[in-house]
Design a protein around this nucleic acid. Structure first.
Lengths: 191, 191
DNA sequence: AGCAATTTTGAACAAACACTCAAAAAGTTA
DNA sequence: TAACTTTTTGAGTGTTTGTTCAAAATTGCT
């Protein structure tokens, strides 16, 4: 069986990076496949030939985004659990100021699609569960098993708080001070 | 000028209560006007004659929801600021367990529509700002002006955390314990 | 160069969308 | 009851939606 085939003329990953931005900012129902063809330059036929349909394209986008988040978390946490969490939270607080701020793609998916696209929402929920499990594991090794569940819960809730509160453009120092108060067990830098 | 007119055969508010449920659960883009006619029993003509268009119907729904939230907050806080906040947060944690849990309509609106329907997202953002301002005012009178900004920020972030984390169906006791730790200055009941 | 497989094209599709409107029905006053 | 106004009806508007497909172009291999 000869392996004779023509290669695609575009890079799937760079297409996904563009659809991530669309779905992330506009949501699943708020993004049309024509938005996608306009943004990527792909014709409908190529798009469907490569990615199947809208749902599968969304799943591929979400997976790529989640993988990147997980990679970043792993990298930062290698500096130590407490220090790593402080760095991650600080980064999230800083991201809030940027223009076109769009919270977190996974969180937005969970909120938007729980009722209308439960299959996609479950995907998002699973990513969030896995993230929490990773935090718990890391926290357990540095702060002990007993506290790890409640501490991991606190971290997750703090992340959700930051990501949603970001839209309000609150004072950065106030948010950081609030986090310092809430997560007093983390090794915040003295200021 | 004689006031001669036929009265509507339905109650606007009870129609709005039904559209609130639709928009709240499915979002703006995820809800079609046909969903609305199916759910309310109204024919398209009646619907448009009474509420204008989809955007205006959504605004009316959001306003009614926000008014109810504000009323409840005012009522509960009349028992005292600290006690009131504890009661509100405890209620939110309890709501998380119910089936068809759908976070908070206002928060979901902010996340879904910031990019595609900025006018509607701004409405939601304004409600959240007003809510925070009320918390700050109440906190200032019981805990002092100096702490009120950071404490109010903490409360808002805790609310966002609870409302999003609710989808994960976490252990209720863990969430409450995490809140007790984070908002240690509130008068939590001993347990 | 020539063949076979894949990819690209873009016009076209049915379904769903937000919304309209002329005619019929119903309500209010006199 | 009659006159007047508003409301209800539901088929129908044009547009946008997600998706398809036969034909053309491109690619890899011999």
């Amino acid at each position: 069986m000869a392996t004779v085939m023509a290669r695609a003329q575009f890079d799937k990953d760079s297409i996904l990076d563009k659809t991530i931005m669309l779905f992330w900012q506009q949501g699943y129902h708020g993004t049309s496949m024509q938005d996608v063809t306009a943004s990527t330059g792909l014709k409908p036929g190529s798009l469907y030939n490569s990615f199947g349909n809208k749902e599968q394209l969304f799943i591929a986008s979400l997976e790529r985004y989640a993988q990147r988040s997980a990679d970043k978390m792993k990298l930062v946490m290698s500096h130590g659990t407490g220090k790593g969490i402080v760095m991650l939270l600080t980064d999230m607080v800083a991201a809030r100021g940027k223009k076109d701020y769009a919270s977190c793609f996974i969180i937005k998916t969970q909120l938007e699609l729980t009722s209308t696209e439960p299959k996609l929402a479950k995907l998002a929920g699973d990513y969030l569960s896995r993230t929490k499990a990773q935090y718990k594991l890391a926290i357990a090794s540095e702060y002990g098993e007993a506290l790890s569940e409640v501490y991991a819960t606190s971290v997750m809730m703090a992340i959700f708080g930051i990501r949603v509160y970001g839209y309000q453009q609150p004072n950065e120092a106030d948010v950081l001070e609030s986090l310092r108060l809430s997560l007093h067990w983390l090794p915040w830098e003295n200021h």
